[in-house]
């Protein structure tokens, strides 16, 4: 299925456009990569900070409900930012990415990361103090935060390893 998507992108106009832009606009690759990094910083300052807060590791004075309400927009803008800055590279060289095992790992981590984050925020906003009504809920919140934290850090690290997949999968 992935190679089907890759072939479909290869034959599309999107690929031509992305290729043209990345080769002809001076400095566009590092600029897009920097926007990608800045969007990751927005995710770190929102999603990851909320996870660290739930785990009791950071910003102890900030209230969880208020944090989620305030940072939700930052989180989803960060996600939109990484998507819109990253997609050009995938469009330009679809086979390089879809056939890359690290790229596959990155997206296998990203999809559950998005789902866990969305569900956690939805539940938090539905009822004030939801996660602190019982010791059991508090434990569940901590587990979800830890899973979310590990998934997001995994996504970021896997992203950087895409260019080095041979170290993992074809050593020497």
């Amino acid at each position: 299925m992935l190679s089907g998507i890759a072939t479909w992108i290869s034959d599309s106009q999107g690929r031509e456009l992305a290729n043209w832009l990345l080769t002809n606009v001076p400095g566009l690759p590092p600029i897009l990569q920097t926007l990608h990094l800045l969007s990751i910083a927005a995710i770190m300052g929102s999603i990851v900070m909320v996870d660290l807060r739930v785990l009791g590791l950071a910003v102890p004075s900030q209230n969880l409900d208020e944090m989620v309400r305030r940072l939700r927009a930052w989180a989803w803008c960060g996600v939109a930012g990484v998507a819109s800055s990253g997609i050009w590279f995938v469009l330009a060289r679809p086979n390089r990415y879809f056939a890359n095992p690290v790229f596959q790992i990155k997206f296998s981590l990203l999809i559950p990361a998005l789902i866990v984050t969305a569900l956690f925020y939805r539940q938090t906003l539905r009822e004030p103090g939801y996660w602190y009504r019982s010791a059991r809920r508090e434990r569940v919140a901590k587990i979800l935060a830890l899973v979310s934290l590990l998934l997001w850090l995994g996504v970021v690290m896997a992203g950087r390893w895409i260019a080095y997949s041979e170290y993992l999968f074809w050593p020497e």
Binding site: L37, L38, I40, A41, A42, I43, M44, G45, S46, V48, M49, L153, V156, M157, A158, G159, R160, W161, A163, Y164, Y167
Partner: peptide, 19 residues
């Protein structure tokens, strides 16, 4: 690549906090 990916995690976390 291990150093580079940890570099990315730390600079984005740093900038998130600074932001």
């Amino acid at each position: 690549p291990l150093m580079e990916s940890l570099h990315v995690v730390s600079i984005t976390l740093m900038l998130g906090a600074i932001l």
